[in-house]
Amino acid sequence: MADTDITLDARGLSRAYRRGSEEILALDGVTLSIKRGEFVSFMGPSGSGKTTLVNLLGCLDNPSAGELHLAGKKIFGEGKRLSERELTVVRREVFGYIFQNFYLVPSLTVRENVAVPLAFYRKPGAEAEVDRLLKLLGIEHRANHLPREISGGEMQRVAIARALVNRPEILLADEPTGNLDSRRSTEIGEVLQELNRSSGLTIVMVTHDPGLAKLGGRHIEMRDGRAYEG
């Protein structure tokens, strides 16, 4: 039944948050599918539900309603929810994540930061990825520096390398250039585009930067918890 080209398939995905007695519907029945190798960018005003959606797509959170299929396999839906442990298994097999704040471990060097995921989970041959990615992202000369000794653009490159070290199929990027100036933003955008083109990495990106959004082949506009294909 599942189209093998479709890697992420969301149907009527909703997420409500409780704030006191109020209930906020952050995501209001989003249906969309993302194909393998696609570069999708989400735009939209602050509070429109972009982060909520991306977190659900990335199995970082359970939806309140709706279904999510990953490569044809149902992850959420019809009362099916995954435990933290099960979500972790899915995440480390399939996803890599980068965020606006790079969240590098300050006490570890650049190389160690890239290798951190391997301390917990290691796909075969992943060790070799560390140096390959350092080189690919142009930060090998910083390998033995601590995060505080490098620039913001370099930090995000380290975060990207770390996200890719276990060779994920899908990279989720929530405002990856939100903390960078426009020159660095463009550079990071080009890095992502290159990764998407050369290795067929599926990328799901949230951004405020229209220039960056153009790099992806597909745009989705978010408003009030709904998605509008543009």
Binding site: R91, Y97, Y103
Partner: peptide
Amino acid sequence: KQEIGILKTMGAMPHD
């Protein structure tokens, strides 16, 4: 807290 959160998105299990 955030660092631990990141380790978990990177595949660390609760017991890790």
